[in-house]
């Protein structure tokens, strides 16, 4: 018993020790040598506490909230559209050779290259950023959904049909569960891309948000402010990824179990 407790304690110590050492080294080096652009972690934390977590108005309200809204809305729109269209294309098997190259081409289009188009067509507000993010990240979701739906074993579909399962139930109980792992892989790639597009759209069309704060900090030589923004982007990414992993674990938990049992 004490062995197990000691083992768990040792493991969590192991997983944290490098973080502590690195932050300590950074603190020690920056405090001792005062490099121009690198702020000590203590100062970054103080900036986050005083300007982001508190203050009137706090940047939690003025920067983090709008950024989160843009990323989540853009990602949700892309997820709904990508999965719906992906299922339609994936299930229509004769369509594949006609659509595949086109989808691959659109997926290869780097979203930042068409940022000016979105700026001109939709202005610099929230609407532009949400549409830009959704358009930029829908392709990996679409592509993975198509792949996932096509990988559903024909035997399962035929069995469902033979047993008189209707098309809607076939979709929700056979096709989507079988395609779920691929769809989640697409959603995950889309999420990290969404964060990139959020930051760049906020830097180019300056109207608030975490990306705007980072650029502002740099331009005003407020380096603790810049670093605080970078840390906050990391935390937001970490949280969103964590939530997605939780959902994925819930949704795919049975899947892994079923696969393992079948082997």
């Amino acid at each position: 018993m004490t062995h197990r407790v000691a083992g768990i304690a040792l493991r969590s110590l192991e997983s944290l020790i490098l973080v502590v050492v690195l932050v300590g080294l950074w603190q020690w080096y920056t405090a001792a040598h005062h490099p121009l652009y690198f702020t000590p972690p203590g100062d970054i934390w103080r900036t986050i506490r005083e300007h982001w977590l508190s203050g009137q108005p706090s940047k939690l309200r003025t920067a983090v909230e709008p950024s989160l809204r843009r990323v989540l809305l853009g990602w949700l729109i892309a997820a709904v559209v990508g999965v719906a269209v992906g299922v339609a294309i994936g299930a229509t098997r004769w369509l594949a050779p006609y659509v595949d190259p086109l989808v691959h081409f659109l997926r290869s289009l780097p979203p930042p290259a068409i940022l000016p188009v979105f700026l001109v067509l939709f202005g610099i507000g929230d609407r532009m950023k949400i549409i830009f993010i959704a358009f930029g990240i829908v392709w990996p979701i679409l592509l993975n959904t198509i792949r996932g739906v096509r990988s559903v074993p024909v035997l399962q579909l035929e069995t469902g049909r033979v047993f008189g399962v209707g098309p809607l139930r076939r979709l929700f109980q056979i096709v989507l569960p079988a395609a779920a792992p691929q769809i989640f892989a697409g959603l995950r790639i889309a999420l990290s891309l969404a964060l990139v597009l959020m930051v760049i759209s906020e830097m180019v069309a300056a109207s608030g948000g975490i990306g705007f704060e980072i650029l502002q900090g740099q331009a005003a030589f407020d380096f603790p402010g810049m670093w605080a923004g970078i840390v906050v982007v990391g935390v937001v990414g970490l949280l969103l990824n964590g939530v997605l992993s939780l959902v994925e674990g819930r949704v795919l938990g049975w899947h892994r179990g079923a696969r393992a049992a079948a082997q």
Binding site: R11, E14, L18, I214, Q218, V233, G237
Partner: peptide, 21 residues
């Protein structure tokens, strides 16, 4: 085990956020 946390913490920092730096 020692490096895992550092990797998990650094990976979600999106590249463009580091552009000003």
């Amino acid at each position: 085990r020692i490096t895992r946390t550092v990797i998990e913490l650094l990976r979600p920092i999106s590249a463009v956020a580091l552009a000003p730096l």
